[in-house]
């Protein structure tokens, strides 16, 4: 029949179409498919997480089929110091995170007291990578958290000064292992991170010192409660080594509220306490951080 001749023509052409045509729902590189806030916020070291702690999260709003990006700027007003940091991250297929952050630490009047000059600023670059090994923060068994390994290479830009205050090196590398899980039945997110580090004041005062040169194992813990899908409150605690002979270093902690204003913009406000910094005790104050993520 003629119908057969028609079919024999149209079928190969349909086949051609199937071969040549991209899938109708070809995934755009940036589909923004991640659940709001599950990318975390940018920690002070640039890696995604809480404010103080690096979490197992991967930056950006993309899922396992896309490449996401985020950028942040953070300011902290302490009793005697000012902190400003900014940076950017790439999250590849919700598997690998690459990040960069710049920290600028203003000594203000303390700078004069320390003989550095008023307003002397310590600066640091942090290049970091993180890989998600297993698990998902939201999905899967509640017994299996999202687990990631990270490396953070830090380079102080004040080598002469940090060595003068007793640091063994102006460069150092931290290694982190993080587990993050949102326990939906309780609306609670928990993160635990183990960090091998010899950084003094996150590395702003160099690495190692007379008390301890090598890396030691430190702990970062975060607990957050979801008030709405876009509003989270929580607290964090981070232990730190005290390597320098001339100045004690304390553990740090914070209380934060993070609000996803839109899918792509998150603002975080926190009360942060980093204890004693360069012999000046009681360094606590307000933190504000703004993050854009796609």
């Amino acid at each position: 029949m003629h119908i057969h001749s028609f079919k024999s023509c149209i079928l190969p052409s349909l086949g051609l179409m199937l071969v040549a045509a991209p899938p109708a729902n070809a995934d755009p590189l940036l589909d923004g498919g991640k659940l709001v806030l599950t990318n975390g916020i940018s920690s002070i070291e640039g890696a995604s997480g809480g404010g103080l702690a690096s979490w197992a999260t991967i930056a950006g709003m993309e899922t396992d089929r896309g490449v996401g990006v985020s950028a942040h700027v953070t300011g902290i007003e302490l009793a005697d110091y000012g902190w400003q940091s900014h940076g950017a991250s790439v999250g590849i297929k919700d598997r690998v995170e690459l990040s960069y952050a710049r920290q600028n630490f203003d000594t203000r009047k303390v700078g004069a007291a320390l003989g550095l000059g008023e307003g002397y600023r310590f600066n640091q670059d942090i290049f970091a990578a993180k890989v998600r090994l297993v698990g998902d923060t939201v999905y899967g068994s509640p017994l299996l958290p999202q687990i990631s390994l990270g490396v953070q290479h830090k380079r102080s830009l004040d080598a002469a000064i940090v060595k003068a205050v007793g640091a063994a090196s102006s460069e150092g590398t931290d290694f982190t292992a993080s587990a993050t899980k949102l326990f939906l039945s309780k609306s609670v997110l928990v993160n635990a991170t183990a960090r091998l580090t010899n950084a003094n004041q996150f590395g702003l005062l160099g690495f190692g010192g007379a008390n301890q040169t090598d890396r030691t194992l430190q702990f970062e813990g975060s607990v957050a409660y979801m008030l709405t899908p876009r509003l989270v409150v929580g607290g964090e605690y981070r232990t730190r080594p005290s390597n320098l002979a001339i100045a004690r270093e304390d553990d740090a902690h914070d209380l934060f509220v993070a609000w996803a204003i839109t899918r792509n913009a998150t603002v975080t406000a926190a009360y942060a306490d980093v204890g004693s910094v360069a012999t000046f005790d009681g360094q606590r104050g307000g933190l504000v951080s703004l993050q854009f993520a796609f």
Binding site: D136, Y139, G140, P142, F183, L184, K186, S187, M226
Partner: peptide, 17 residues
Amino acid sequence: PFAAQNRLLAKLAPMDK
């Protein structure tokens, strides 16, 4: 209530695979 929403989601989340 939001907490009850999350309790239901907690039952559904492990089905993702």
